[in-house]
Amino acid sequence: MSAYETQTATPAGEVPVDFEPMDRSQFLLKGALAAGALYGAAAVGPVVRRAFAQGGGGASQNDLDILNFALTLEFLETDFYEVAQKDVKLSSEYAAFAKEVGQNEQEHVDALSGAITDLGGKPVAKPTFTFPLEDEASFVELAVTFEDTGVSAYNGAGPLLENKDLLATAGSIVQIEGRHAGAIRFMAGMQPVVEAFDPTLDEDAVLKAVMPFIKA
């Protein structure tokens, strides 16, 4: 009767999962140890910054950890689109996507790091990434993986946020990740929707998905 009953779920991405698991503190440490790009808070999206700052007397360590976790993913996405624009010969359609989406991710980075600082935390340093980017096909495959993973990561972390203002703001970011994910899949001739309900990933699963791309 309904197409969704026969619709086969496309895997969120073909990311390797057979490597040593790593917990969040190691992950964050790895980021912090990376030669640190210093990120000023000047360019932060003002609305989001304000929303974050309305946290009312700072945020819990739990929430700060989640924000730093999100920041690391946004670092990854930002770096990915930057490298792709530089190193890969993309068709004009994908080049435009990489440019626009990369700018969105950079704004997420700025907002998250500014917010972490405002809330009395310390933003993780930007890790050094490595991407197996050879051609447009590998760009598309990785972009799909990262956007789908971003959606699932935010959706998994959302209910764990204690501060509801942070949840609202994380929501306004994850909707953008969802839009990116749907768009890149559609451009690539894939199903824009993985499942009727976006799968969620917990931190361990997200770490497994992104660790191959973190060099230091």
Binding site: N155, G158, V174, G182, A183, F186, P192, D198
Partner: peptide, 16 residues
């Protein structure tokens, strides 16, 4: 959790 997992599907639809 359910609302979030629907929210991003609506976002995918909207973008396409």
């Amino acid at each position: 959790a359910a609302a979030l997992s629907i929210h991003t599907v609506e976002a995918r639809h909207a973008a396409v």
